[in-house]
């Protein structure tokens, strides 16, 4: 996620460089910037007062609050569990490790509506486990944990893999115990990866729709997340309202990205 300054390596000559740069900018504009600008314009089309009124209506606030809080809980759990899973996959050896490793990506590869349906079978009213967790906030968190599982694992794994183990031996020879070696030597080197994984997981959790639409039950003020609320707005022809809430989600996302970028910069301060 951190942008590196160009060092040595292949560079295109003047004219081609200008052309490729132009192509990249145009492409990004078409695919990313223009749609984002359009949604922002739509959100403010009735003026800032209307925008404010829309996003402060109780149902919108409830949906945004639920989304933000659930997402935060989910990424915190992910930061810990994702690091742990990566650790086990890299440092431990057990039969079936390759299978476990490929299972990690499954939630990501699975169509989200299928995920939702799976969770519904498991936790819904016809649950064969007898657990009736559907239509609760707990279900929202479970669904989000499911779809965001791979992000931290996949961001931490390569860092852990390339970590110089002699560093740990050196720390040990200097008298450090296991806890100190983990917190002072290993963790600081994994932090940029954890941060990157958290950023992606948070963005995913904020906007998740498919995995939640069946299992959360979409009860206003209770289990209705922002993305479902936005769909509701569209369905009742409140396009401006939908755009306004979308812009708020966008701002959340950008704040998180900026925060994570700071952590990464700090974590990689020694690598410039």
């Amino acid at each position: 996620m951190a942008v590196s300054r160009p060092r040595a390596g292949l560079r295109l000559p003047g004219a081609e460089a200008a052309m490729t740069k132009g192509l990249v900018v145009t492409y990004l504009s078409l695919i990313v910037l223009i749609p984002l600008a359009a949604i922002a314009a739509k959100a403010f089309s009735a003026g800032p007062a209307e925008f404010w009124d829309t996003i402060t209506q109780p149902q919108a606030i409830a949906a945004l609050k639920l989304t933000a809080i659930c997402s935060l809980i989910v990424v915190l759990i992910n930061a810990v569990m994702g690091t742990l899973i990566a650790w086990v996959l890299v440092r431990d050896d057990f039969p079936g490790k390759a299978i476990v490793n490929s299972v990690i990506d499954l939630p990501f590869a699975l169509p989200t509506i299928v995920a939702s349906l799976t969770l519904l079978t498991l936790y819904g009213n016809d649950s064969f486990l007898g657990i009736h967790a559907a239509y609760t906030r707990f279900a929202v968190i479970i669904a989000l944990l499911f779809v965001t599982l791979p992000f931290v694992v996949r961001a931490v794994q390569p860092l852990l893999l390339s970590l110089d183990r002699d560093m740990e031996s050196a720390a040990e020879s200097l008298g450090a115990g296991k806890v100190r070696i983990f917190t002072r030597i290993i963790l600081p080197n994994l932090l940029p990866g954890i941060a990157a994984g958290v950023a992606l997981a948070f963005a995913r959790a904020l906007g998740e729709f498919g995995a939640l639409v069946l299992i959360s039950g979409n009860v206003p003020y209770k289990t209705e997340v922002a993305s479902v609320f936005i769909r509701g707005q569209i369905e009742s022809d409140q396009v401006v309202g939908a755009a306004a809430v979308s812009v708020v989600l966008l701002v959340f996302s950008m704040c998180m990205l900026a925060f994570v970028n700071l952590i990464q910069k700090w974590g990689l301060r020694h690598d410039r």
Binding site: M167, A170, H270
Partner: peptide, 14 residues
């Protein structure tokens, strides 16, 4: 209480 020096330095890079 031994001092150990590694071929590839094992510097704490952070």
């Amino acid at each position: 209480n031994v001092g150990f020096v590694f071929q590839h330095y094992a510097a704490f890079k952070h």
